[in-house]
Write a protein that binds this DNA or RNA. Sequence first.
RNA 1: UGUCUCGUAGUUUAAUAGGUUAAAACGGACCCCUUAUAAGGGUUUAAUUUGGGUUCAAUCCCCGGCGGGACGACCA
Length: 936
Amino acid sequence: MLTCKSFHSCIASKERLLMDYKETLLLPQTDFPMRGNLPQNEPLRYAKWFSKEESAYAKMIQNRENAPKTFILHDGPPYANGHIHIGHALNKILKDVIVKTHYFFGEKVRYVPGWDCHGLPIEQQVEKNLGKEKKDALPKSKIRELCREHARKFIDIQREEFKSLGVIGDWENPYMTMKFKFEADIYRALCGVADKGLLVERSKPVYWSWAARSALAEAEVEYEDKEDYSIFVAFALGDEAKSRLEITGDASVIIWTTTPWTLPANVGISFSPDENYVLTSDGYIVAEPLHVKLLEQGVIAGEVVKTFKASVLENSFAINPLNDRSSQLILGNHVTMDGGSGCVHTAPGHGDDDYKVGLRYGLEVVMPVDERGCYDETVVHLGLLPNPESFVGEHIFKCNERILELLGDRLLKCSKFTHSYPFCWRTHQPVIYRATKQWFVAMDEAVGGRESLRKMAMDELQKVRFYPKSGINRLGSMIENRPDWCISRQRDWGVPIAFFRDKRTGKPIFDAKVVEHIASIFEEKGADAWWDLEIAELLVEDSGYNPENLEKVMDILDVWFDSGSTWKAVLQSNDYDAGEYPASMYLEGSDQHRGWFQSSLLVSTANNGIAPYAKILTHGFTVDEKGEKMSKSKGNVVAPSDVAKQYGVEILRLWVGTSEYTTDLKISDNILKQISEQYRKIRNTFRFLLANVNDLETVMPIAQMGELDKWILKHAKAVFDEAQGYFREYEFSKGFALLNHFIAVELSGIYLDISKDRLYCNAKHDSLRLSAQSAMALIAEKLMALMAPTLTYTIDEMMEYAPSILKKESVFDVVYSVLPTIESSFDEAYMVEAREKFFEIVDNLKKEKVIKSTLELVLQTKSSKISALEKVDAEDWFTVSKVIEHDEAGEMGVFEVAGDSFKILKASKCKCPRCWKYRSKSEEELCHRCNEALHG
RNA sequence: UGUCUCGUAGUUUAAUAGGUUAAAACGGACCCCUUAUAAGGGUUUAAUUUGGGUUCAAUCCCCGGCGGGACGACCA
């Protein structure tokens, strides 16, 4: 009983003793919470940033009013339809990080977000809600009003979603391509193109639903099985062609088609430039690889008498057996050997490939079909069929049989087969390709003393900086190879190609006075006015034109032209506080090489001869952990709101910051967990820094600091300088890799650990303690500024709890400044190696239960590197109780660094109850240092 | 099929201009501490997609394969 009692009292008194001394230590102190509770807390802070009273964006503008440099990020507009997905989140967060990077490096910044509002998907949504019949019955302006409402609704939704990601910008006054003034500016950009002589009209085939009497988008086409003819037709060679082949008798090219009704519009026959062609003994020309197959099918019967490349026939002629018109023999890469005869019936009015190859050879676009799908007067004018009058008004599908009859013995084989064919999604009738008049921006026209648009755009690209560099190849090859830009659409929801046409001549009117008057009407009433007002009302006074002779062009613009005009409507218009034209940077997903980057370049260059951007930055797409595309059916979709709810927006932002965004970005639960770990490490390291400098009043000059503190600052400077360089080049993952490494290895792993003794146990105003605190304050300050662009929320939260030495009103008052150059003779490589070797042995000692703490050890060495250090610095470096030069007994391990030997010994003194170093005379007595600290 | 692009430990990223034994973090395994404690520290595990070529030397440059992605729309 007695022993038991004394045992308890002994423990109690020992605990009291420990507790008492713990009170005397200067332990880290802060209210900055270890855990962020991000999902709960972020929305509150964001609400403040986006409030009128404390607007973060307003503050950012105000704080940099007199900044010497300016950075303008011009926002590429997302489409105002649907909720945002992870790709949007990546895009907007990256923009936000880049804008803030420039901001925290001291520059003036502008970021005005915007939305793309016009276009088919919204129109389709409205039609779906309305029903097709109802839509057709409504006036255009009513439909447009419904589209406008739809867009507005999703702009509001997306705006809140973007703000919930902590993305800062001018959300109070964003741009929208459907605003009246904006529509007017898009139209003005179009007039600029016309004014330069680059706007031309030409026929081009489009999907046409004769049943709905409307052009269709690819999305409006459904594929169904359809039974069609499969026919082989012989076109006799002209004399020129025959002489090129050095033949005397008759010879014919065999074509294959499934649409006999397009034969009247035939103007050419395409051959493959690569394959061999053969002439058979029965006088037919087919591709060599198909010869046997055609024999088997009974299309031809003769053996090969001659083999040749089709290039010998290029630009000679065959004769269309239907109408005796010439059919030009040409070469085209679209010709394949997987069916038919290898000689392709070419009617540019009825096929896309045909149209493209026809452009190259300057073939005539013959298109004798009206909007109902019936032959029109063209068959008469051009004599496309025998007895043409009898075909006028007849539906094309009903004429197939008559045409087959007319072909007579030129029809070598006729059968029927079923294949997949495009159908109209509304009427479920088969669609056709039908050339209609379209508007184009000419790429190769050199008019008015200017180079062609293609050449100018290519030249401008050379001046643009691309991130990554490979972007220029992509955009460049697209500009180089793209055909003329077809900008007209037969739709309702868009900006009209608002030109008058003289009915008598068919010529459009581009007079400056006329078009500017229309633009000013749009500015006031919106582009709806084009549909709502009469020609006389739209025509400027004393225009010199008689409204009676005019008609309106009723096409609308390709929405790419809308977004291609944002540089004008946003940057040049003065309607927004958006910065200057050209912008510092355009930033979008890599799909925009063909989209916005290109359309903006073309519209801007056509108008003003310059690119609208100085830099282009592109990012990849988000994929799942296996690198596969996200899709609802795969169930691997990661929604930004879910990440925000489960992990917090900061985690999503850190994911952006640490990912290599030029390629595809992987995201998954597993990856987010990993990022969360990194965040935790960053947050806790900051917390420890704040807690340790909490009572620091002034920062000590670096020159007066202790050796260990100078070492970490010198190392920090190298890391921060390099990270800054990476951030300026937008290589965030590299910058973060450096910072994370520094935080984990040198800072938290070594420096903070070895500084604890000085910070906790030395007297409050002891210079070694102040020195360590000063180093920590400097590191915290720089680190906060470097991370502020990405972890804006966290740094802002930190500012609330920061001790006075680091405190700012908010994160937005932070500006990064570099650390000065620091002199230090500390041999880092040597010391780190020594530490590693030391801990390797220590680990074994611990596993063998020989020691529990390194403070139980003394290190013996004659190393000159160690003796050059202050004793206490050397002790702290290894976290041992003493470093000595003279040999002592009790060796527990040895190691060597660069020829210097180190010996690990057991400490002989007693554990100081306050600082736990083994330097006391007895377990109850304080060591010398602690005694001084408490009573000195 | 064409144009462009990417491929490094299980995961996310490093490796100055082609140059020692390819680095770190997270994860895993093992251990210590309880004075950053829903923390901290240590030891350890593991990789250049594949086959050729150029070179004294290749993760890096060239060619071919395999695998991923973007673009080739009256889709944004």
